[in-house]
Amino acid sequence: MNIFRLAGDVCHLVAIIILLLKIWRSRSCAGISGKSQVLFAIVFTTRYLDLFTVFISPYNTIMKVVFLALSYATVYLIYMRFRNTFNSENDSFRLEFLLVPVIGLSFLENYAFTPLEILWTFSIFLESVAIMPQLFMITKTGEAESITTHYLFFLGLYRALYIANWVWRYHTEGFFDQIAVVSGVVQTIFYIDFFYLYVTKVLRGRGKMTLP
């Protein structure tokens, strides 16, 4: 464990909590892509299947349980509790455009052709595109509430810190996980465009981020 990965995990946790609290307190999920949240729940489910078979550390186990619980709670709030505030017509990204390539690729490129490895690889590839429906919704509606942008900011920060973590681990312990690194870099690139908008729009005072 290093400071970059710890900070990354904390940012990830903060992002998930920001979103969950926003939905719970505003009792609305307007402007939030339910599809992205479903994809994140699938990512955690397919990645943490080893929760009961492999014990790494208390931290690892606890964080996995917390991420699973919070992501399912978010999906529950969106599709069940506050479903009347869910504007599904704006959440129109075609998930099959993501799932088909990701499933295909995880069968082609993996470390071992075993169910657990393929599901882990699937979760890695899926995570790199899971935010697409949310970013698509923002470009479609042309705006994002500031809380949603803070959520995306911390999510992007988590990915950037994971890249720093991989650089650190490569130089200190020679660790290099090709699938995770390539997928993580692709995922972080999606946030770069958003980071620019976040800094120029949201942090300059305007509550809403309106796209040009």
Binding site: D9, V54, I56, F67, Y111, A112, F113, E117, D177
Partner: peptide, 10 residues
């Protein structure tokens, strides 16, 4: 295929 690493990252 590379050896299956210990997956210690979240």
């Amino acid at each position: 295929d590379e050896d299956i690493k210990q997956k210690d990252e979240l």
